[in-house]
């Protein structure tokens, strides 16, 4: 556990979460959600849970983003709220 590293990741995590919820363009929202997944992956790796970090990197940051983007392309791109 390196405190400075933790704080940097957590701050970016909160920023990414807020942006991906508030942005109107759903394509950007899904890309930022991918960044959020990758930051969580860094956090897992930093806490020593390497297997969980690997799963998060492949599922959370990889496949989920692709599936969200595929869905955005087939629905509409603007969020209505």
């Amino acid at each position: 556990m390196i405190l400075a590293f933790d704080i940097v990741i957590l701050v970016f995590l909160v920023i990414a979460a807020i942006i991906s919820l508030s942005v109107k363009d759903l394509l950007s929202a899904s890309m930022i959600y991918g960044i959020y997944g990758f930051l969580i992956c860094l956090l897992w790796a930093e806490m020593g849970a390497v297997d969980v970090a690997f799963t998060e990197a492949s599922v959370g940051a990889g496949i989920s983003t692709v599936l969200l983007v595929a869905t955005v392309f087939n629905t509409k791109r603007k969020s209505s709220d």
Partner: peptide
């Protein structure tokens, strides 16, 4: 090492998705 069926399977599935993309 870290890894196993779930992670490897997701990466293998992703390779086909890249082909499709």
């Amino acid at each position: 090492s870290p890894g196993g069926g779930f992670q490897g399977g997701v990466i293998l599935g992703a390779s086909f998705i890249i082909l499709a993309l």
